[in-house]
């Protein structure tokens, strides 16, 4: 069932477009990496602030609010370039364990950020326990690192 969806995607106009010229895939990949830099940078800025490592003289509420705005931009860039990349090599990805690792981590990351971390951190940080803030930061960095690293390994295997 799922496999036929992946086969359909690869045979679709988008899949064919992504395969037609090798440069198309490479350019989309490069934009995907720019999205990674933006998403990763805003994750690190927010989470290292919560851990009191950087930007200590800027209120963490401000860093979270501003960082999250650009995190969403990064996430959109990654999704809008990630889907075409998948379309180009869909059946390969279907059989690649790193692809599924990445997708599960991505789902966990998105759910974590939008249903837990952001709703909690929208309130005044000084009313939250430091251990809560710090565990949010560690969980967030871990899950996004897993998403990025397993993504890189899709290309190494197969």
């Amino acid at each position: 069932m799922l496999l036929s969806l992946f086969e359909w995607l690869e045979a679709s106009a988008l899949g064919v477009f992504m395969k037609d010229l090798p440069a198309t895939f490479a350019i989309v990949e490069a934009v995907h990496l720019m999205g990674l830099a933006l998403l990763g940078g805003t994750v690190l800025a927010q989470d290292l602030r919560l851990l009191n490592v950087i930007l200590r003289d800027v209120p963490s509420n401000v860093v979270t609010e501003q960082g999250h705005r650009w995190f969403k931009v990064g996430l959109w860039i990654l999704l809008l370039t990630g889907v075409p990349m998948l379309a180009g090599v869909a059946t390969k990805c279907y059989h690649n364990p790193f692809y599924w690792t990445k997708m599960i981590a991505l789902l966990v990351g998105v759910l974590f950020v939008f249903t837990l971390k952001q709703p909690l951190l929208r309130g005044d940080h000084s009313l939250l326990k430091p251990v809560t803030l710090k565990s949010m930061a560690v969980a967030s960095m871990s899950v996004w690192f897993l998403v990025a690293a397993s993504g890189r390994w899709i290309g190494f295997s197969g």
């Binding site: 990674l36 990763g40 940078g41 690190l44 990025a148």
Partner: peptide, 23 residues
């Protein structure tokens, strides 16, 4: 590749601040 998030991630935040669109 992962270190892009630290090097260019921080650079992007600084440059976006200068452009007046972040922080």
């Amino acid at each position: 590749v992962m270190t892009l998030m630290l090097s260019l991630g921080m650079l992007a935040v600084i440059d976006l601040r200068m452009l007046g669109v972040a922080f």
